[in-house]
């Protein structure tokens, strides 16, 4: 007998879009930082690290702490 499939934790379209956008920005930021470091310009590293850290915190919050929409009374 088939077991019921585990219920999917619903993750809203907006949250997924924001997470994907954050990853795209992170990729562009890392590529830019790496090119600048190769050119000998290290002054932007603290600022780039801070911006990247903020983006990562937002992504981690969305992925781990954002409320599950299916955790409501019906579940």
């Amino acid at each position: 007998m088939n077991q019921p499939r585990p219920r999917q934790g619903h993750f809203s379209d907006v949250a997924l879009g924001v997470t994907l956008l954050i990853l795209a920005v992170q990729l562009y930021l890392f590529e830019t930082v790496l090119q600048s470091v190769l050119d000998g310009q290290r002054a932007l590293l603290p600022g780039a690290f801070s911006a990247s850290l903020v983006l990562t915190v937002v992504a981690l919050f969305l992925a781990f702490k954002a409320p599950r929409l299916d955790d409501g009374p019906e579940s």
Binding site: R5, P6, F11, T19, P46, A48, L55, T56, A63
Partner: peptide, 26 residues
């Protein structure tokens, strides 16, 4: 079964990897 949330967690971990890479360069 691979939920959106699991995918988002994967993306978040990759994002943390980029941050760690910039920190390493710093």
């Amino acid at each position: 079964h691979f939920s959106r949330r699991e995918f988002a967690r994967f993306l978040a971990v990759v994002s943390a990897g980029f941050t760690a890479g910039i920190g390493y360069l710093w």
